[in-house]
């Protein structure tokens, strides 16, 4: 086990942010998760996790341009930091390692 680990929801949020790449802001993330995973997420739940991940240094954010929609409020775009990528990769490796270690028949059954 590495020293970093995060919850399942945190991991999914980070992956979604990574998937959206340049377009990862609040509503987009929620919709992405809805369409890809069929998972309903409230703004509150998402925003808390986003801020927490940002504080931990896994995510970074920047403001976008103001537009006419959203009553002129700017979007905050999130992106995965290199540190965040490292941690994600680590998590993936750990899982793969476990998958690989699993006896064949367990999966087949």
């Amino acid at each position: 086990m590495g020293k970093h680990h995060f919850g399942e929801f945190e991991e999914i949020v980070m992956l979604t942010v990574a998937v959206l790449y340049d377009e990862a802001y609040g509503i987009a993330i929620i919709e992405e998760m809805e369409s890809r995973l069929g998972r309903k997420v409230s703004i509150g739940a998402l925003q808390t996790v986003l801020r927490r991940l940002e504080k931990k240094g896994y995510l970074s954010s920047r403001f976008g341009e103001a537009t006419k929609v959203r009553e002129g409020k700017r979007k905050r775009f999130f992106s995965v930091t290199s540190y965040g990528k490292k941690v994600l990769a680590e998590a993936k490796d750990q899982r793969l390692f476990l998958w690989k270690a699993m006896p064949e028949f367990v999966i087949n059954n």
Binding site: Y25, G26, I27, I30, I43, Q47, R51, F63, V69, R70, E71, K73, R74, K75, R76
Partner: peptide
């Protein structure tokens, strides 16, 4: 610090 973009998100979702 969070007010603007979250409010934006809220408004965007509201509009939709």
């Amino acid at each position: 610090d969070y007010q603007e973009d979250i409010e934006g998100d809220l408004m965007e979702r509201f509009e939709r």
